Each structure stands twice: as C-alpha cells, then as structure tokens.
Simulated assay, not measured.
Amino acid sequence: MARNATEAWIPEEYGSEVITRISRTSAVEALASRIPMASDTRHVARSAGMGVDIVDKGSSYGEDVSLNDEVILYAKKFGKAIRIAEEDINDALPNIIATKMNDWATSYAKIIDNASLAVSAAPGVGVPFTSLYQLLHTTDAALGYTADANITTAAAAGAPTYDEFSTAIGNVEIGDYYDPATMVSIAHPAFRKSLRGVKDSQGDPIFVKGLAGTPDTIFGVPITWSLGARLSATATAAPSGRPLMAFVSTDLMQLGIRSGPESVFIDGRDGLSALTDESILKMRARRGWAYGHPAGGSILVG
C-alpha cells in the first residue's frame, strides 16, 4: 500500500486485502446495517411498530399509540501500534507491513464480533458496547423484556440437544420482530461438531452444509461462523468462554461507521524513532454498535 510523506491516516480502499479479510472473518462487519457517523454519537430511531384495525364504512380511524424511541451509537476506537525495525523492512522478502496489516485485520474482525455479540458485562473499561448477550441478559421494563428470556443454555457443555437448538430459534420466531427474510444465525465454529449429529424426529439433520458457495444452514436459516462468538468478561480478540449461537435480524444489527479501517506509517528516520531505526505502524477503526430490540434476537450458550 503506497504511503505519502505527510504521515496522515490513510483509509483502506474497498476491495483491499484488509477489507476483504475483515468481511470474511467478521460476521458483524459483513451482515450488520452500516450507519454512517459524523461524530462520536448518533441517535438511531427505533419504531415500536404500528397497529391496524378494521374500519367500518363511515367510521373514524383509530390512532396508533405505540411509543417510538431510539438507540444510541457511541463510536469506540479499536487500534494497535507495532514497531518495525528498519532492517526488517529492508531485508525481509515478504512485505512485512502488509503482513502486519492483515494480521491486525484478523484480530479486529474477532474483537468487533466479540464486543458486539458475546461480552457478558455492561459498558465500561474494556467493554465498548452493550453486546447482544448483555442486552438479552438485562431486564428492560419499558420494552417488556425480562432478563434471560431469550437465552438458552445447553445442559451438557459441547453437546446441545435438538430441543435446545429449537428453543433458541423459537424464542425469535414467536416475537413481533421475526422476519424470515432477514434472519441469520451467527455461531462459533465449535458448534459444527455437535450440529452434525443432531437430527429431528424424522431422522433428518437440522444442520445442512452449504455447497457451491451457499451458506451452511440450521432449520433453514443461514449460518455465519465467527471466532469472536465466545463469552468473555471484556472485549477480546481471543475469547475463551463458552461458544454462542445467536439468531438475529440483520435489520436490527446497527453498526456505526465513524472511520476506518485506516493506517498511518511513521518513518523511523523522523523524531525520537531515529535513535532506534524503528518505524511505527498504527492501525485503527472507530465503530459503534447497538442491537435494535431484545425481542428480535436470541442466544444459545453451547
């Protein structure tokens, strides 16, 4: 990737290896509704729906009294810097800068999924957003949602049953926000092993492996695999908790785009870095996240 001498932040171009790797690895970046952010906060309207009545000839229309509100996206920065010795840049046959940028892209893809889907704590130090898990783990009286109503935990770790998979997806299907056209499953690959052996009462597998570019499916719902979909106390690119399978609507996944992915290369011949012959590569992206309504999502804890 070409650099200029002004050392300004350079956004990755669409179709670059960094963007391609993020889209391939991050379910959230690939599937969520992308909301442009012109500042560090953005209010996104959330509709409470609208009713409909039978109106007899000559009668008055009833007025809808649904209370609309909003969700707020807060842009948080995901970044990292690395020092690279001038000798490594000059002597190495591979492009070490491009390699490190791709490595960052992989880690970013996992941490944005983890932060958006699987962190078990409320926003604070190390927790940039209210994750889907935390949203479903919290009572919201204004929305009529009770904590954990849409969270199903497998009784046997590593071996969820047919009924547990069915209950998890059913929690979304019975809600007002169910839309088969936008429904997807986001799951950690650890579920692949257990899914292969689960069959319905007719002996048919609920998991169907996609062929010729089509996605894998469960109960006919496409699955996107995510290495970030493991429970963790804070956002991390290497979560180690129990794997999650989420059933969500892409319309309710709100990903705020403030900037990036972008990078800046600070030449080791300038400033104090000249004393060590080390250049600095910095990568960052600023993102916000919110899931539109707890009734529109569910989680199976594997």
Rank of each mutant, 00 (worst) to 15 (best):
A290T: 13
N95G: 12
P94G: 09
V184S: 02
L73N: 05
P36R: 10
L136I: 07
S166D: 07
A295L: 01
F78H: 09
R269F: 14
R284T: 01
T214I: 00
F129H: 09
I186C: 04
A121K: 15
S47F: 04
F191H: 00
T234F: 04
I111T: 13
A122W: 12
A142H: 11
N90I: 02
V65F: 06
I111L: 11
A38D: 13
V184D: 05
A274Y: 09
K199W: 03
A98T: 12
A154T: 05
T214G: 11
I280N: 11
Y61C: 05
H188F: 06
A274W: 07
S107G: 14
I174T: 12
I266H: 03
S26E: 05
G241P: 03
G296Q: 03
R21Q: 14
I280A: 03
R192Q: 11
I218Y: 01
S47Q: 06
V44P: 08
S298A: 12
Q254E: 10
E86N: 04
G158F: 04
D204T: 10
P243W: 09
N90S: 06
G197D: 13
A81E: 08
N171V: 04
I72P: 02
S47N: 01
D176A: 11
I35V: 15
G203I: 09
V52K: 08
D103W: 02
P215W: 10
L143C: 14
I10V: 10
S263M: 09
S194D: 12
G260A: 02
I72L: 09
D113P: 10
R269L: 09
A48G: 14
K199P: 01
H293W: 00
A75I: 01
S240K: 10
L135C: 01
K209T: 12
A181S: 04
Q254G: 02
D216K: 07
T152K: 07
K209A: 04
G124Y: 12
S66Q: 10
S66D: 08
L143D: 13
I151N: 10
T138D: 01
R230N: 02
E12Y: 15
P294D: 02
S263W: 06
E278L: 14
V264A: 00
I299G: 09
G170L: 10
D277E: 13
A274H: 12
V119D: 10
D64C: 03
N90A: 14
F78P: 01
D267C: 06
E17D: 14
S263H: 01
S26Y: 04
P239G: 03
A159I: 05
A27P: 13
G158E: 07
A187F: 06
V55W: 09
Y145T: 01
Y162Q: 03
G203R: 03
Y74N: 08
G124D: 12
Y162P: 05
M50H: 15
E70K: 02
A8V: 14
K76D: 02
L73G: 06
P36L: 13
W289A: 08
G49I: 09
D91N: 01
G175E: 03
N171L: 08
